[in-house]
Design a protein around this nucleic acid. Sequence first.
DNA 1: TTGAAAGCGCTAACAG
DNA 2: CTGTTAGCGCTTTCAA
Lengths: 355, 355
Amino acid sequence: MGVTIYDLAREAGVGIGTVSRCLNNHPNVSAQTRTKVLSVAKLLNYQPHAHAQRLASKKSNTISTIIPFFTNYFFVEILQGVQDRALELGYDLILYGVNNPAQAEYYLRRSLQGGHVDGVMYFSMKFPENYITKFEEIGLPVVLVDTFHEKFDSIRVKNKEGAMLATRHLLQLGHRGIAMINASLDTLPAKDRLEGFRAALEEFDVPFSAERVFTATNGKQDGFNREAGYHSMKNLLQASGGLQSISAIFIASDVQAIGALDAAREMGVRVPDDIAIVSFDDIELAEHSQLTTMRQPMHEMGTLALDKLFARTKDPKAQPTLTEFMPELIIRQTCGANDASTHSFSSSTRIELEE
Amino acid sequence: MGVTIYDLAREAGVGIGTVSRCLNNHPNVSAQTRTKVLSVAKLLNYQPHAHAQRLASKKSNTISTIIPFFTNYFFVEILQGVQDRALELGYDLILYGVNNPAQAEYYLRRSLQGGHVDGVMYFSMKFPENYITKFEEIGLPVVLVDTFHEKFDSIRVKNKEGAMLATRHLLQLGHRGIAMINASLDTLPAKDRLEGFRAALEEFDVPFSAERVFTATNGKQDGFNREAGYHSMKNLLQASGGLQSISAIFIASDVQAIGALDAAREMGVRVPDDIAIVSFDDIELAEHSQLTTMRQPMHEMGTLALDKLFARTKDPKAQPTLTEFMPELIIRQTCGANDASTHSFSSSTRIELEE
DNA sequence: TTGAAAGCGCTAACAG
DNA sequence: CTGTTAGCGCTTTCAA
């Protein structure tokens, strides 16, 4: 069934070592034998056995991506970047979608399996401490995307600063009754964005009130989804005080904002007339919903993640790196600042931080 | 660096064969040695080497998914189904996102590589004829999703019938000037949906006019995306006649419809008052945009696809199967049939984003 | 029930 | 430049 290098060797009248050299473009082969072997290989439609190669060479050319709810479009857009670079570099991408914390550990364990993958990309979740040393011992590269740990290469967005920009924008438009719709504080981005929200309020001497932070607790999910946004918005609008005291909301992600818009529409609340909204991410659909939002360079984050992983396989001992992107305020309709003269307050500069 | 079965064998004082048997739950081992070996394995934190297993057992427990533009949410939702089942069955999922036809063949070739994967899931695209025999010869299982070939197991939706239902709905609402926004006819779904559109018109004795079928030709993509929908809608609205003669549109997918809504809003055209819309897919966001659309059971299609692949590895000689789902009309706001709405959303107008 | 040994298909070191 | 040989870590006979 399978053509092996032994077949090629016999057919071409050479040894298997030579065949291997020809196939792998090793230097020390005469042009003549190379042509010969290659033509025989084509003739017999030879296909190398992936796992034999991997066993012998100790390289899998595969990386795993561990992603919470990859149905969240934020991840899809990052994945597209990863995928594009993976194609160039000849990597296979294993997709591990996580639906609860236990699953994340399962996939981590699976990735740890001897030689299974050459590296792991871990998204948005807090990396479990008890796995840190395991990865260090094995020497399996890890890149963290949208989250952080000092032991590993990390890529993320300046969430706190972004949240400040977003909230500040609302404040500058004159709003003072500002609420926040957030996701689970178990995730780093949610925590940082809350901090930024708070810091911006303080800047403007607006007292922070925990009662104005709404987080939908829909089961085990992290809250970065449309439903959670929908429910948070309902809660917000029904809260005592409600629209009396609140005129603007900072929402932790676009998908949540989309859900929030649905809730608002249902309850006859107009955006931005009755309530202004700024969110975070700038997924493709943000434009459709005319969301004013903080843009993250998702595609670039994806390609960079793979580059970092690749670099680390080359130099495992290097210091962990951290790349932080500054999100950019994209003004559309939901914030109520229609004058299109100002399109952005900050440029998405990229900041390299070596530790 | 890696703990092997030799280490376990030495430590437990048995042979490697016995170790292997214990690890794989083979019957013929004494309970005593099994416990012993297993405890040693735990102690040494043994992790089997994936590729050695795969080389020896000739099974990879991996399948590849070849998907056009997987950023299209339709695929994301199917993938979620595939992923859920893959977890249960212990399969790894390789993600191959295709951006042009040549890439599809590349990934097909890659999947064909000896033992690389146990099966291939091929989405929505026409399966290249010259690869049919290659897969048959190798005996590598293929499942087609959202496309069809008699040689392979296929899963799809009754596109023609679905398109007829959609168009008929518009006709029954009294519309006669009905246009269609379609995607590239290189894809089976687009072809079938056009056929259904046409057939429904004929039923009602409405003459079909090719000029009323709009397909945006944005480069190499298949047209099932938001931008294509946007441009098609612009073309439609600017076409001679335009709104004079057209009062309703059947759009080949939700993502295109979302783009079309953007174009309509931009040009001050109200949906459904000025023009009614019915689309296809019922992705999660269809509800957000209140699209009347044809629902496809995407998650179920995903799990079924993996089941079929699994079944085929068990019985490679079985006749190829075809499973067809009948799409279901979901009535929301864009078609203008508000009274019949199946959802509890208020019939108030869309979010007010116009300036 | 168990140990020993023969591969799985390939890479890479080592002689020639 | 090329053939031979020894693994890579595991599964699976085949005897014992």
